[in-house]
């Protein structure tokens, strides 16, 4: 079989204790027998570990943060593309997705493909909209309520039983057992992320996750359920295991077929003692633990590349149950000249 020869650019090389998915995505592509890729890293910071890891990247370019605006961002991508033509970009960080979705037509014109959700798919799954989302697509979600001021805190007890979860719009979630604790968390979160605060029913159970890939036409191309075995103090999985859980797969298929989701996604659910599943979050991209799915037989990064390039992809039907991942840290050694090269010229050849 002839291999697909491609230049693929990947972001999210921050393989730290709160890892970006870049390196796991690259490992999936490197493992593929169907793709022969030259892989370009797009890095925001000159100490992103992925840049320095052996056998991962062929070349790295520094790019400006999305916060510098689409114009500056695209100007840099175009500059790189001129030197080093790119077939496909896989953005892996939440903060970039908006920019890539907006820039999609421009990238297309340049001949650069992406495979990201539509703006509508992206916007409607925001945490603050979860209840509407659940109703619209017929999935169970925890009851929630929005706080826009301290005066709303008294209203919580009319609708909820303590404990409740107190969440920020984008990040942070705390358990509160009484109104005093809500006040506390409310102050902490608003100082950092502003309003609104989301109060969510606390669902007792086990957190389970699915990594999935939708083809944009309603078909689930890949889906692997997992349970975290060990969690860091930042709440990130340090170890996990694939599960045989047909209900999770059914919910995933249902959601993807209803939303016609395009691209990678991670579903976070709580499974209760009564075997009910509550969706608590939908992440609009491949998660950092995707290599577990690759190891379990579903090479999601490979499938995503093929979908993006317009190739036919046969949906995966099975995966190995009981496959585990264990993250570990490892001190790479480097030299100041690599750092110099990156800092002064904004690019480095591996």
């Amino acid at each position: 079989m002839k291999k697909l020869k491609l230049t693929i650019a990947v972001t999210g090389l921050n393989n730290t204790d709160n890892p970006g998915p870049g390196i796991p995505v690259i490992r999936g592509i490197r493992d593929s027998k169907e793709i022969e890729a030259r892989i370009i890293g797009l890095a925001y910071e000159n100490l992103e570990p992925g840049i320095y890891m052996p056998q991962m990247l062929d070349k790295t370019y520094m790019i400006p943060y999305p916060s510098s605006g689409i114009e500056a961002y695209m100007e840099r991508i175009e500059e790189i593309h001129k030197k080093d033509p790119i077939n496909l970009i896989i953005p892996n960080l939440d903060a970039e997705l908006y920019t890539f979705m907006k820039a999609e037509p421009r990238l297309k014109e340049l001949g650069i493909r992406t495979f990201v959700p539509t703006l509508e798919q992206f916007e409607e799954r925001h945490k603050a909209n979860l209840e509407t989302y659940g109703k619209k697509y017929g999935i169970k979600v925890p009851k929630s309520m929005i706080l826009t001021g301290h005066h709303d805190i008294q209203k919580i007890q009319d609708e909820f039983e303590y404990p409740v979860l107190v969440k920020g719009k984008f990040y942070d979630a705390y358990i509160a057992y009484n109104p005093e604790q809500v006040v506390n968390h409310y102050n902490k979160i608003t100082a950092k992320w502003g309003l609104p605060i989301i109060i969510q029913e606390f669902i007792k159970g086990t957190e389970v996750n699915v990594v999935a890939l939708g083809d944009g036409k309603g078909n689930t191309v890949a889906a692997v359920p997992m349970r975290k075995l060990f969690i860091t103090d930042k709440g990130k999985a340090w170890s996990g295991i694939t599960l045989a859980d047909e209900e999770m797969i059914r919910i995933t298929n249902h959601l993807i077929s209803k939303t016609k989701w395009r691209g990678g996604m991670e579903l976070e659910m709580i499974k209760t003692n009564k075997n009910e599943y509550y969706m608590i979050e939908i992440n609009p991209r491949i998660p950092a633990w995707v290599y577990l799915a690759v190891g379990a037989g579903q090479n999601i990064p490979e499938a995503l590349v093929k979908l993006a390039m317009g190739e036919k992809v046969k949906p995966f039907e099975t995966y190995k149950v009981g496959k585990m991942f264990i993250r570990y840290s490892w001190d790479l050694l480097g030299n100041i000249d690599e750092f110099e090269q990156l800092s002064i010229f904004g690019e480095i050849e591996k």
Partner: peptide, 17 residues
């Protein structure tokens, strides 16, 4: 200072352009 305009201060570990 290197030809690229990179300065590394070995006393502090800081770098400059």
């Amino acid at each position: 200072v290197s030809e690229n305009g990179f300065l590394f201060d070995p006393h502090s570990g800081e770098s400059y352009s």
